[in-house]
């Protein structure tokens, strides 16, 4: 995945990602119209499909709403990169198939840079600045879930085997 960077600060909470006033539906296309609205009301009109959010510490803190990664993904955000993620958001992003990456050096990336994530080599490449970083690998058990195609596909396999 490759895209243009939008920068946000520390502690971007789930109310900023998708405000609760829009949670009277879980329809992805409705939610996608309002991402990051209270952080930057113009964000949806400014961003393009495939863009990447680079943020500070504790991204996705607050509510457990899975609507947050659903909305980001549906709006076309191809990845979120931050030094740390709030625990529930981290799990939700994996379960929803929104790619997220832990990277300490986010301060070296600027808004408007073009970056590429090389999943196979575990690298984030800042094309605009000709720099390369290694992102933190995900825990082994979570990799098994990813390999199975996500948590629900993992469950489907167990259903097929008659384990549940």
């Amino acid at each position: 995945m490759q895209g243009k960077v939008w920068k946000f600060g520390d502690n971007i909470d789930t109310d900023l990602i998708i405000a609760a006033r829009y949670l009277n539906t879980s329809e992805p296309s409705e939610l996608a119209k309002h991402i990051m609205e209270d952080a930057d009301p113009e964000f949806v009109s400014k961003m393009s499909y495939g863009d990447i959010i680079v943020a500070g510490e504790n991204f996705g803190c607050g509510s457990s709403r899975e609507h947050a990664p659903i909305a980001l993904k549906e709006a076309g955000i191809s990845a979120v990169i931050a030094p740390t993620f709030a625990r529930i958001f981290y799990r939700n992003a994996f379960n929803m198939g929104l790619p997220i990456f832990e990277l300490k050096e986010v301060d070296e990336i600027e808004e408007g840079d073009t970056i590429r994530v090389d999943m196979a080599n575990g690298e984030i490449i800042n094309i605009s600045k000709s720099k390369k970083y290694r992102f933190t690998p995900i825990p082994e058990f979570m990799q098994e879930l990813v390999d199975a195609g996500g948590l629900i596909n993992f469950a489907k396999k167990e259903i097929a085997k008659g384990e549940v």
Binding site: S64, N95, L151
Partner: peptide, 10 residues
Amino acid sequence: TGMGSTDISF
């Protein structure tokens, strides 16, 4: 603990 909807589904 709190989790997302998919984890609840699991």
